[in-house]
Amino acid sequence: MSEKRILMSGNEAIAEGAIRAGCAFYAGYPITPQNELIAYMAKNMPKAGRVFIQAESELAAINMVYGASAAGFRAMTSSSSPGISLKQEGISYISGAQLPAIIVNIMRGGPGLGNIAPAQSDYFQATRGGGHGDYRLIVLAPASVQEAYDLTREGFALADKYRIAVMILGDGVLGQMMEPVTLAGKNAGKPLPKRWALTGCKDRKPNVVKSFFMAEGGLEKANLDLQKKYKIIEKKEKRYEGLFLKDAELILVAYGTTARIAKNALFRLRGKGRKVGLIRPISLWPFPADAFRMPGRKARYLTVEMSYGQMVEDVKLSSGCAEVDFLGRSGGGIPGEEEIVNKVNRMMI
């Protein structure tokens, strides 16, 4: 008999995943469509003997995470698009100080206050670094509630391993939808010993955690250290799911909720004999460029997004194709299976 399945929303699964990964500190501020996440943390973090704080603002929440992480604790915050914009200063500081942290963005419509409908239009912000400076986040994009749970746990391990902030990037559908989940395993690896953490320096040399380097050459050296780390991550931490790539003449590229819809379209098209494949990036940074560089492949690419084509750039850069087709909606619309099938049929005439 397999593990017991329980019905949970994406928001709840991320929260439960974090608690089981040993998240010791959570601070957040409510915003739709990720409210079930903060509500779950409010209820269950104290029960587990951990710290939950509803902060006075998004800015306060991310800086509390900064502090908790500097003190050596596994820490997380969550929000949705406009709230994530508010957190960018703190995210940049955390990145500069090389601190592990989990930041969850359950995307809604933008720009501005936008609306609460599902969206994927924070791709640029997440993958390019939404704050100032030369930094990167590991960005993981789950496509199911189970994967939201799994990637959150994995995210904590990656954050500790590389001393980097990891963003879990979902959309309103993923956050709100309930699906069966198996809560396997107990934790995401033991938190690594953090010799760099600020734990009180009696009988040892003080540790320094900062993103401020005024001495001549200091910042350049710190930035080169970051770049070195990012190179390693780019080499080792790319993740994707590929379907029917061997003989595909047209490859759909989609992540998160949109990938589920694309997958349905793919099976329908295959049923009609169309040689269609799918690449679903799971890590958006590092982008799974290898998936696009198979020797001898002569496929066209069609990216499907709930944005106006923010991922197209990465597909072009990875595949070397100057032309990449795009199908997307943003601001409340979800690309439909039918739309994808029709578009592919038109492309493959």
Partner: peptide
């Protein structure tokens, strides 16, 4: 939710998606 959960117990794949506006 009751429908989705009962279907899950029966071994089906299920999803439940609410209006959250």
């Amino acid at each position: 939710k009751v429908l989705a959960e009962a279907a899950m117990r029966q071994g089906w794949q299920v999803s439940w998606f609410p209006a959250y506006g």
